[in-house]
Simulated assay, not measured.
Amino acid sequence: MKGSVLVAIGGNALVLDGEPGSVPRQLERAAQFAEQVADLVADGWRVLVSHGNGPQVGFILRRGELVAPDADHEGLPDLPLWLAVADSQGGIGHILTMALDTALERRGLDQRAVAVLTHSEVDPQDPAFSAPSKPIGSQITGETARARAAAEGWTVVETSPGAFRRVVASPPPLRIVEAEQIRVLAPHAVVVAAGGGGIPVARTADGWRGVDAVVDKDRASALLAATAGVDTLVLVTGVDHVYVGWGTPDQRTLDQVDAAELRAHLEAGEFPAGSMGPKVESALQFVQDGGKRAVITSLPRLREALAGQSGTHVMLRQPTASATDLPTVPTPRPEQEI
Rank of each mutant, 00 (worst) to 15 (best):
L6M: 06
N12G: 05
L27Y: 07
A42K: 10
W45F: 11
V47N: 00
V49P: 04
N53H: 03
Q56H: 15
Q56I: 03
F59Q: 06
L61M: 15
V67C: 02
G75C: 08
P77V: 00
P77H: 04
D78Q: 14
V85C: 12
V85G: 13
D87P: 09
D87L: 11
G93K: 03
H94N: 05
H94M: 10
T97N: 05
M98F: 13
A99P: 10
L104E: 06
R112F: 05
V114W: 02
D123K: 15
D123Q: 13
P124V: 10
P124D: 10
Q125W: 07
D126E: 04
P127S: 11
S130F: 11
S130D: 15
Q139M: 15
T141I: 07
E143R: 14
A145E: 04
G153P: 13
W154M: 01
P161N: 10
P161W: 08
A163W: 12
V168I: 11
P172C: 05
I182E: 01
P187H: 03
A194R: 08
A202R: 14
T204S: 12
G207A: 07
A213Y: 11
D216V: 13
D216H: 14
A220T: 13
A222S: 14
L223T: 10
G229H: 06
G229L: 07
V234R: 03
V236H: 01
H241F: 04
W246G: 13
R252C: 04
R252M: 15
D255E: 12
A259V: 07
A259D: 07
E261C: 01
L266R: 15
E267T: 10
E267S: 14
G269C: 02
K279C: 00
V280C: 10
F286M: 01
F286P: 02
G291C: 09
A305P: 05
G308N: 09
S310T: 02
P319L: 03
A321D: 07
A323V: 05
D325F: 12
P327D: 00
P327R: 02
T328P: 00
T328D: 02
V329F: 06
E337L: 11
